[in-house]
């Protein structure tokens, strides 16, 4: 098997012990890969270290052990090759929407003229639907959905090799979230961007991603499973719910989060399993396609593919 574009090996985060106590291990031995152009979501309960994994990928945090190799090079420190969309948008409030985007584009292409920078930025703002003067408003004059659109435009405009989304729709109302999810799919399929995203929302993960990583509860959280979303693209919210695979995958995810994430929690990896990638699960495949026979509608009895 060829090495994936991004390879995460043996990633562990421990915080030093408070006086007299044991060090706190948030997660340990995370091993997984992300292919170029792939959209990967990670789901887990609060405290399992999803955000820490993302911050390490962004270069804003460092792992206790283990490392990440992207395109043959080890990740050390933040870089414009990895764009980040934060949950709270992290727009600079004293700059207009357009200036927030040009801020990123100027950093990416310092050699460009002002016109080039503005033109490029406006192209991406248009992609997320900010036009007709809205791009000259300050973030405080925009709705939450609009702000997150600007943040997404800023991240896409620098054309990073890896786009990191940290619960980008967490603070938005359900209707706005739906619209922006559809927009995100549209932009993503047009750009073939590699995306790694944190979410709490099972439906969102199925709609958007190629693969979903499931984490057990912390401390000693692990990336336990890699669920392949076997639903054809292009997808959209209205049609995906009619796919038979949709509910199989959904049930599998919900069952994991509701029950197994707890059961598997705290189990320290044995020597024999150390360094192993999470097992790949394809609950969406129909029985005929499945390599092993599993009763349909019982997604908790997972199939092991590949």
């Amino acid at each position: 098997m060829t090495k994936p574009f991004i390879e995460i090996t043996g990633l562990t985060k421990r915080y030093p012990a408070p006086k007299g106590g044991e060090p706190l291990t948030v997660f340990e031995d995370a091993n997984f890969g992300i292919e170029k152009g792939e959209f990967v979501c990670i789901i887990g309960h609060s405290g399992c270290g999803k955000s820490t994994i993302m911050n390490i990928l962004a270069g804003l945090d460092t792992p206790t052990t283990g490392g990440i190799i992207m395109g043959g090079k080890e990740i050390a420190g933040p870089s414009l090759d990895r764009g980040v969309v934060f949950q709270n948008y992290s727009l600079l409030p004293w700059l207009s929407a357009l200036k927030n985007v040009t801020f990123g584009v100027r950093a990416r292409h310092p050699e460009w003229t002002r016109e080039q920078v503005v033109e490029h930025s406006q192209k991406y703002l248009k992609m997320v639907g900010l036009t007709d003067g809205a791009e000259h408003r300050k973030p405080s004059q925009l709705s939450g959905g609009m702000r997150q659109r600007v943040s997404i435009a800023r991240a896409f405009a620098i054309q990073p090799q890896l786009l990191l989304l940290d619960e980008p729709f967490g603070a938005l109302d359900a209707l706005t979230r739906g619209t922006i999810q559809d927009e995100l799919i549209r932009i993503w399929s047009a750009t073939e961007q590699t995306v790694f995203m944190i979410t709490h929302d099972v439906d969102e993960a199925i709609l958007l991603s190629d693969r979903i990583l499931l984490m057990t509860n912390g401390p000693y959280a692990r990336v336990a499973e890699s669920v392949v979303v076997d639903i054809n693209r292009p997808r959209n919210r209205a049609e995906i719910i009619h796919e038979p695979a949709y509910y199989k995958i959904r049930n599998h995810l919900v069952e994991f989060l509701a029950r197994r994430s707890k059961e598997l929690a705290g189990q320290q990896n044995g020597r024999e399993s150390a360094g192993a990638p999470p097992k790949t699960v394809r609950p969406g495949l129909s029985e005929a396609e499945e390599p092993e026979r599993r009763p349909a509608g019982r997604p908790q009895l997972v199939s092991l593919a590949g």
Binding site: P78, L80, R82, V84, I158
Partner: peptide, 19 residues
């Protein structure tokens, strides 16, 4: 968050200070 924005955009110390 804003410092992180500067970091992820690879801004140098001086540009982070001023921008």
């Amino acid at each position: 968050d804003w410092i992180n924005v500067a970091k992820t955009h690879e801004l140098g110390a001086l540009r982070t200070a001023f921008q």
